[in-house]
């Protein structure tokens, strides 16, 4: 069986994604490595709002970026969504790993784990949960279509069932 992040990396590259802006995260490390191996330009940025704004600039310039981040940083980037990406109608594909839910042992992660998807959906960002490895390619393709085709902001939510996160010890 293919691990989710391998299919995701393949689909992102096939769709013409050339740059990934990210805030580091353990569950996403396989995807980050996979993208780097596929010659995607990697941009480690310190804050989630920087990633969204950077990706908006890329889109305005005709680029095809993807943003990767952890759900704990959703609060940081709401203003970049609400006052930049959404009103300028710039669709950004985001892959977001979940913390604070199934199997979480760190109490400080739980509040944003409970709220992240609802916060995003409240400002109009669609969130699609990925829980099965064999759906990664299809779901990544769908998020890219929403972002680059429909100019909608969409987030693929990488759930703990896929492993690779802090819950695994």
């Amino acid at each position: 069986m293919t691990v989710w992040h391998e299919d995701a990396a393949d689909v992102l590259v096939e769709a013409g994604v050339t740059v990934a802006a990210y805030v580091p995260d353990k569950r996403l490390s396989g995807l980050l490595d996979g993208l780097a191996c596929r010659n995607v330009v990697m941009r480690s940025l310190p804050r989630e709002e920087e990633c969204i704004a950077y990706a908006c600039g890329q889109r305005i310039g005709g680029g095809r970026p993807v943003v990767l981040m952890q759900c704990s940083g959703v609060g940081n980037c709401l203003n970049a969504y609400g006052a930049f990406a959404i009103p300028y109608r710039i669709g950004i594909p985001v892959i977001m790993s979940m913390r604070g839910v199934l199997g979480e042992r760190n109490p400080s992660q739980v509040p944003m784990g409970k709220a992240a998807v609802r916060l995003l959906e409240t400002i109009g960002v669609q969130c699609i949960s990925l829980r099965r490895h064999d759906q990664a390619g299809e779901f990544v393709r769908g998020v890219l279509d929403l972002a680059f085709g429909a100019q909608e902001n969409a987030v693929l939510v990488v759930e703990p069932e896929l492993g690779g996160g802090r819950e695994d010890g």
Partner: peptide, 15 residues
């Protein structure tokens, strides 16, 4: 989006 102009410019410049 105060605080976002510089990263926006960074993305645009690289694209």
């Amino acid at each position: 989006a105060m605080g976002c102009a510089l990263p926006g410019a960074l993305g645009l410049a690289e694209a």
